[in-house]
Amino acid sequence: MTTFDDRERAFENMFANDQELQFRIQARRNRLLGEWAAAKMGLTPEETDAYAKAVVQADFEEAGDEDVIRKLVGDMTSAGIDIDEPGVRAALDEQAVIARRMFIEAQ
């Protein structure tokens, strides 16, 4: 019976590690997306850092990416940047690829 218990523990650990990695990749993606948006809005380096952190925090409001997209579209529109939801989604996808690549290269 210990073989099955060991195997179960190994799968649980693997699942936990995968979930943690996905969380880190998503947080990195959101930070990169915040930096991208800040550059479009012409923010200073200090404002860029604060804005990127705010984008990461915005992702905790609800499940999925809608909260982040809504924040970016609203903020960028308020700043006079002509962007729509599909444009932000495209940037989100691009930053996800970059974030994933960063984690792969770090290992």
Rank of each mutant, 00 (worst) to 15 (best):
T77N: 11
E94A: 03
Q57Y: 09
K40N: 05
I25M: 10
G87Q: 02
A90L: 05
R70N: 14
E85K: 11
Q57R: 15
M41R: 12
G64A: 10
L43K: 15
A37M: 08
A16S: 09
F23R: 13
R101T: 05
L92T: 00
Q95P: 01
L92R: 03
F60P: 04
A27Q: 15
F23A: 09
A96T: 05
G74K: 10
A99L: 02
A10S: 07
A16C: 01
L72G: 07
R31I: 12
R89C: 01
V55Q: 11
K71Y: 06
D59Q: 15
N13S: 09
G42C: 11
G34Q: 11
D59Y: 11
D82R: 06
D93Y: 00
Q26C: 06
D67A: 14
M76H: 03
G80C: 04
T2G: 07
G34K: 09
I25Y: 02
I25E: 07
G42S: 13
A99C: 01
E61R: 14
E62C: 08
L92S: 01
T48Y: 06
T2R: 11
I81G: 01
A90K: 08
T77F: 02
R29Q: 15
D93G: 00
E66A: 13
M14N: 08
D49M: 05
F4C: 04
A39Q: 13
W36M: 04
T44G: 10
R9I: 08
Q57T: 13
R101V: 00
F4T: 11
F15C: 03
W36Q: 06
D18G: 07
D67R: 13
G34L: 08
L21Y: 05
R100E: 08
R70Y: 12
L21G: 00
A37L: 08
G87D: 00
Q95N: 03
Q57V: 10
F23T: 11
E47Q: 15
N13C: 01
M76P: 05
A91C: 00
I104N: 02
E62K: 15
A52D: 15
E61N: 11
T77L: 04
K71F: 06
Q95K: 12
A37N: 06
D18A: 14
E8I: 06
A91R: 02
L32K: 12
R24H: 11
A27I: 07
E8G: 01
I83P: 01
E12L: 10
E46M: 05
E85I: 08
G80P: 07
Y51V: 10
Q26G: 04
I25S: 02
I83Y: 00
Q26S: 14
A63Q: 14
A91N: 01
D84Q: 08
G42A: 11
E105H: 03
Y51E: 11
G34W: 10
L92Y: 04
D93M: 00
Q22D: 12
A39C: 05
E61P: 03
